[in-house]
């Protein structure tokens, strides 16, 4: 006997999630069936998120209000944009409280292996912002991976003709660790990016 059709429909739907295969989908579906209270909770959360959260029309971050609280805040430095790969990067920087400018979320990185080119990212909207708003500096804060670096190179080329300072976040030794534990390329980058100690 085959499982009921609506059950199969659920496992098929769960498999649309990244990283979920057939077995995990079946396990999750059985879990939802045998724990209906949690199933209900998950169902309500998904419903709420889908109806209430959208992408900010200015920066591309996820938000309930559009524009998002950061884009509409009068207390932020509106002349600096920090470019990141994904919404979670914004929240990481915000948690640290180390930046008071605006953000721009690309929604991914350039990666042909994942079928992603510049047109699949929020790059045109970034260029438009830099042209329209009074931006002095664009900080490129993509990850120090091959794809993050490729995306940074592309942004540099696109922004070159605008009258704006383009910077890249520093790479090097994590704070509070021992040099002895750093891998060699991190040490190399740290050496390349060294700074003078100022008074």
């Amino acid at each position: 006997m085959n499982p009921p059709k609506i059950f199969v429909r659920l496992t098929d739907a769960l498999q649309l999630l990244p990283g979920i295969g057939k077995k995990s989908a079946e396990r999750a579906a059985f879990y939802l069936l045998s724990n209906p209270q949690n199933g209900e909770k998950i169902f309500r959360s998904i419903e709420a998120v889908l109806s209430e959260i959208s992408f900010c029309s200015k920066c591309g971050n996820i938000t309930v209000l559009d524009p998002c609280p950061i884009c509409s805040s009068p207390r932020r430095d509106r002349a600096t944009i920090c470019v990141v790969e994904k919404p979670m990067d914004v929240f990481a920087i915000e948690r640290a409280g180390v930046f008071n400018g605006l953000y721009h979320v690309l929604g991914g990185l350039i990666s042909p292996l994942d079928n992603k080119g510049p047109k699949d990212l929020n790059i045109d909207s970034l260029i438009a912002r830099v042209g329209k708003e009074k931006i002095n500096e664009v900080i490129i804060a993509t990850n120090p991976t091959t794809e993050g670096e490729a995306t940074a190179l592309y942004l540099r080329e696109q922004l070159k003709s605008h009258n704006v300072r383009i910077t890249r976040i520093a790479q090097g030794i994590p704070v509070g660790t021992d040099l002895d534990f750093a891998d060699d390329v991190t040490l190399l980058r740290a050496m390349e990016g060294r700074r003078e100690i100022k008074d």
Partner: peptide
Amino acid sequence: QRNSWLNQVKTGRELGAVEVW
């Protein structure tokens, strides 16, 4: 990444930004 780009162009999809690779 560049090989993947080359292959996609071969099959008719131009992703762009090949210079960065």
